[in-house]
Amino acid sequence: MSKRILVVDDSQFMRKRITESLEAEGYQVVGDAKSGNAAIELYKQLRPDLVTMDITMREKDGLTATREILNYDPEARVIFLTILEDERYREEAKRIGAKGFINKKDLKQLAEIVRETMC
């Protein structure tokens, strides 16, 4: 059975790209959300195997949403996918328990990191 993934990004264009990239590798994107609040709700409803999370979003940012998801489910697997290139975000992501941190310009690495995370 293919792994179920929730895609979170405030840009519809980016959600589409991430979804296409994951589906091409055989993963099942079970839902997408454009804000941190929607991501938390969907996570509770869908209980996906993994979440790809943007950081900068217009309602609730990805770091806060991830903290809440991990509070709800400490086993949640979250990979950050962001355009921000600041080491502090990478460190913060690691500190709160994210499984990965990828820059959006390196989207090709996503499938590989998802594969490693799922193992």
């Binding site: 990004d9 405030d10 840009s11 519809q12 264009f13 980016m14 454009k34 355009i83 959006k104 310009k105």
Partner: peptide
């Protein structure tokens, strides 16, 4: 949001 994402990329 889309325009921002594309431009930043």
């Amino acid at each position: 949001a889309n325009l921002q994402e594309v431009l930043l990329l």
